[in-house]
Design a binder for these strands. Structure first.
Length: 421
RNA sequence: GCGAGCGUAGCUCAAUUGGUUAGAGCAUUGGACUGUGGCUCCAAGGGUUGCGGGUUCGAGUCCCGUCGCUCGCCCCA
């Protein structure tokens, strides 16, 4: 192919096994979101740039260097959404959903865009499935969200392959205190920190916990813990959530260092990690954001949300789950005289929702069998002069190689019983 | 934005310190086999060695540039 037409870096085609798992994740997520009482919402991919600048935070890395932003034909500043929450909040306010309790719990599934350098588990266009729950500050809400995610991962078969990590980043009341404690601690040990951390000190001091530098990590061992400075209310939120998770036997660990990169989070935050992906190991994450709705000019309404990274979850599934083999049949005919007969049979099979490949257009029988083998079908149904005359088919199990002739009226039964003597 | 590694057939990889016409397996196509796939055997097609320049009698191999991919940092899902 002419390379001028090749796909853009970080943008991929999804098909085959990947798409199977993609759909599995999407369907499982949708099923549970609905069971838990969430309503689906489809949101625009393109929004005003200002929405994300305000929502995610001017100082965040996403806004500073990762957005696909440009001017549209009307000279408006627009951005391809890098995440879902800001848009959901916007839609919540713009459609006055506050007035209708039915739409206080929303979920979305769709593509997100970030202009980063691609690497394992990181793409420029990726997909997230997420929920947002408006109107309550109760830790029960935090728990409901996390437990829903737990059951989704359980149904997908990977709940025992991942780690749940929980923390609290505090609220308006206690975070400023903590930040000032941390800043004075930092200044006491200023020389022991790396250049990056010195920059973090001024930008967002909490991020120093994300530093991979061993010397910084070592210094931070003695740093004040956020847990020790949480206000009573925040402490109550974290304790209640973790109690509920323990009671429901959802395994988790508390990590003082867990800080989220989006500025809007308050109180409880969490992340789900899978070790097999490489450096980009967070397959889901989220938390409480009690100030974002008012930030957009709405009333002061607390909220909680999380999102699953679909591509990263696909990686996890591929490493742990076998692809199921579905029932399928190849229809082979000996000569063109039996073409109509095999089309009749195809009709019968498809009526029973059996995946049917008609191969009559492909060469001789030997060639058809070869193709049937490549397609990986469970059975070959072979029709020739004799079968046509007697209204029968030859049914061959492609795995065992066993073959019987069966009357047409018994074909479906035979296939469903999957038994050939 | 920064750092490292890698670009040879559709795929996975060979090719002696630079040395004839760049090879093999898998895959594809045809045949052995005109009513039976997988296994075997035979044959065929498939390459501007990512691209451009340089060094050299001679470059897949060395040098420079460029593009692409991968991994990591940053950050996040």
């Amino acid at each position: 192919m002419d390379e001028r037409f090749s796909r853009l870096r970080g943008f991929i085609d999804i098909y085959g096994e990947d798409l199977y798992f993609f759909n599995l994740i999407e369907n499982t997520f949708r099923k549970y979101a609905e069971i838990y009482g969430f309503e689906e919402i489809k949101l625009p991919i393109l929004e005003r740039t200002e929405l994300f600048v305000r929502g995610i935070g001017e100082g965040s890395d996403i806004v500073r260097k990762e957005m696909f932003s440009f001017k549209d034909r009307g000279n408006r500043d627009v951005t391809m959404r890098p995440e879902g929450t800001a848009s959901v909040v916007r839609a919540f306010l713009e459609n006055n959903l506050l007035n209708d309790p039915k739409y206080h719990k929303l979920f979305y599934i769709g593509a997100m865009f970030r202009a980063e350098r691609p690497q394992a588990g990181r793409l420029r266009q990726f997909h997230q499935a997420g929920v947002e729950w408006f109107g309550s500050d109760s830790p029960l809400v935090d728990f409901e969200n996390i437990s829903m995610l737990w059951y989704i991962l359980k149904e997908l078969g990977i709940s025992d392959k991942v780690d749940f990590i929980v923390n609290s980043v505090g609220c308006d009341k206690c975070t400023p205190n903590y930040k000032s404690y941390l800043t004075s601690f930092f200044d006491e040990h200023y020389d022991k920190f790396c250049e990056d951390c010195k920059e973090r000190r001024n930008k967002n001091i909490l991020r120093i916990f994300d530093c991979k530098n061993p010397s910084c990590q070592n210094t931070l061992k003695n740093a004040p813990k956020i847990k020790e400075t949480l206000c009573d209310n925040c402490k109550y939120h974290l304790d209640t959530l973790t109690d509920m998770m323990s009671k429901d036997k959802i395994p988790f660990s508390i990590e003082d260092n867990l800080v989220r990169g989006l500025d809007y989070y308050t109180r409880n935050v969490f992340e789900v990690r899978y070790k097999g992906i490489g450096a980009q190991n967070a397959i889901a994450g989220g938390g409480r954001y009690n100030n974002l709705v008012s930030e957009f000019g709405g009333p002061s309404i607390p909220a909680f949300g999380f999102a699953i990274g679909i591509e990263r979850t696909i990686i996890t599934l591929k490493e742990n789950i076998e692809l199921p083999k579905k029932m399928s049949v190849a229809l082979c005919s000996v000569s063109s005289k039996e073409t109509n007969f095999s089309l009749e049979i195809a009709k019968i099979l498809r009526k029973e929702k059996i995946v049917t490949h008609v191969l009559s257009h492909i060469g001789n029988l030997s060639k058809q069998m070869k193709v049937a083998n490549k397609l990986g079908v469970k059975f070959a149904v072979i029709v020739g002069e004799e079968e046509f005359r007697e209204k029968k088919v030859s049914l061959k199990d492609m795995e065992t190689g066993k073959q019987n002739t069966v009357p047409i009226e018994n074909l479906i039964d035979k296939l469903n019983n999957k038994g050939l003597e």
